[in-house]
Design a protein around this nucleic acid. Sequence first.
DNA 1: CTGTTCCATATCGGTAACCGTAATCGATTA
DNA 2: TAATCGATTACGGTTACCGATATGGAACAG
Lengths: 110, 110
Amino acid sequence: MEQELKKITREILLGFWKVHILHHASEGPVVGQWMLNELQQHGYRISPGTLYPLLNRMERHGWLRSEVDAGAGLRARKSYYLTDRGRDVLRFLRERVEELRNEINEEARG
Amino acid sequence: MEQELKKITREILLGFWKVHILHHASEGPVVGQWMLNELQQHGYRISPGTLYPLLNRMERHGWLRSEVDAGAGLRARKSYYLTDRGRDVLRFLRERVEELRNEINEEARG
DNA sequence: CTGTTCCATATCGGTAACCGTAATCGATTA
DNA sequence: TAATCGATTACGGTTACCGATATGGAACAG
């Protein structure tokens, strides 16, 4: 069951968490380590080697922008904020999630 | 907007479509080419070089099993069916989708 | 039967993402 | 001034994604 969760994570859940991150960023700043902790508390696991490059990439995509917090060192904490473009992406994804949900969830149709 | 969709697809939508495939397989046989067409009709695009390895992988994971249809050639049409294990995975994913939806969709909470 | 077209899957080579682990760095505490 | 803590970066290996091309059988034309 542990290996199974790992497969599901790689194939599918990671994508869900990206949506989660965008949504989270729409409500307040997002910090890498917080996400690591939050997911772990829910029984999941995302590697730092996955999360941080992912955040960088989302910034490169123009969905997030980052601000270095206090002491401006190379390894200082970064807060990520949703951009306007990121907001558009999130809006789009909300619809896709709703569609998927309606499709696969019986109750949604009853 | 075309490039944007490509990024969103790679990052996130592909994962959604995997759930879609599992759900589809729970209601009847799934054939690769059908999925290619279906997604294209909805304005999306998945490369054959992505879809077919993906189906093979899901079979390797034990989520799907395949049957070669008529003439048993190397390139004959394959129909994929959901396994018991795949059904468990789908059940698990339904809950995750529901959670994600409740989190990001305002209406869901009202 | 041969050739052609159509449906469908497989394969290939390059690029990018994922992952665990180790390194790094500023701030706080001992 | 050494040790720990919070947090990010970097590295090397593995795997996934992708567009394009190759392959293979079926059905139909002639």
